[in-house]
């Protein structure tokens, strides 16, 4: 008898539920005891009933709240820790980056203007995967190892990726990293709740889909002290929509038509007021 991987996982889930009396299980995440009940979604995956849902997840970056290096460090470290991101040192060609900072002229390459206020020119912005509405990376991937979920998140199947790096050539935002060598020896302390990656696969920010599925906000959002706002772009009452309705926000390279889901409040037009 042949057992498909998914069926195997389902079987495992059933056993786990039977033993643990209610465990959540995601294809990508290790199980974590939780009081919440589980249900089975369309793909046959068991998700927590606490899972957060959206038609299109989006993020607003309030740049005015990223003032110090510490503001960036907190956010980056939370992400690194949660996702087992290796540290090859700042000058390595093999760097893996999910969320990091870039100055204005790089974040908004092409928009750069010599007459911008000095304060903006010197400002740094957090950059990450934009979880595009029309993701070129998904279009070019020959194995559907990178895919767009119904909630708008662009995900990666590290077990299917063949490492052709077509997605890296296709991404207009430089958001993707490749595991040029085995990353495991370079991970400071391994978080057993998230998979480590093998050499030869591409990875990037996943909008913390594993946390959303357990009813938690992305870890960078939690660590940002309100500088990163996360919500459903499709819901007019969501936090992100409330900010976008009243503030001028810009996106990176909108002219390419990829439809980024990360918005930036630039020039002190903060949403905190």
């Amino acid at each position: 008898m042949k057992i498909e991987r998914r069926e195997f996982l389902k079987l495992g889930a059933a056993v786990a539920v039977g033993l643990g009396g209610g465990l959540t299980l995601d294809v990508l995440t290790k199980t974590k005891p939780a009081a919440a009940e589980t249900r089975t979604d369309v793909a046959g995956t068991r998700v927590s009933s606490k899972a957060l849902h959206a038609k299109r997840w989006a993020m607003v970056v309030d740049a005015s709240k990223f003032k110090t290096e510490e503001d960036f460090r907190r956010v980056k470290e939370a992400c690194v820790k949660a996702h087992n991101i290796p540290d090859f040192g700042p000058d390595s060609k093999h760097q893996i980056k999910w969320i990091w900072e870039e100055p204005f002229e790089r974040t908004f390459y092409g928009v750069d203007d010599p007459y911008l206020p000095e304060a903006i020119k010197k400002e740094n912005f957090p950059v990450m995967c934009n979880h595009c509405e029309n993701p070129p990376c998904v279009r070019v991937c020959p194995t559907q190892a990178t895919f767009k979920r119904p909630d708008g998140i662009v995900g990666m199947d590290y077990h299917r990726c063949i490492g052709c790096r077509f997605c890296m050539a296709a991404c207009p935002f430089g958001a993707r990293s490749f595991n040029f060598v085995d990353p495991r020896p370079y991970i400071k302390d391994i978080n057993p709740d998230f998979p480590t990656r093998t050499k030869g696969v591409v990875e990037k920010c996943n909008f913390c889909m594993e946390r959303l599925d357990q009813g938690l906000m992305p870890v960078c959002v939690e660590a940002s002290n309100g500088a990163l706002v996360f919500g459903d772009l499709d819901d007019p009452t969501s936090d992100v929509r409330k900010i976008l309705d009243t503030h001028y926000a810009i996106r990176r390279k909108p002219e390419l038509g990829t439809g980024p889901s990360v918005f930036y409040l630039v020039g002190g037009g903060g949403a905190g007021a």
Binding site: P142, I162, G163, C164, R165, F178
Partner: peptide, 22 residues
């Protein structure tokens, strides 16, 4: 050039007409 050459058959196992590589 592949990072995971042993998975090359994934291109046939999961044929993807919207990828020019296919």
């Amino acid at each position: 050039d592949l990072g995971q050459p042993m998975r090359i058959m994934n291109v046939i196992l999961h044929p993807t007409p919207h990828s020019m590589m296919f």
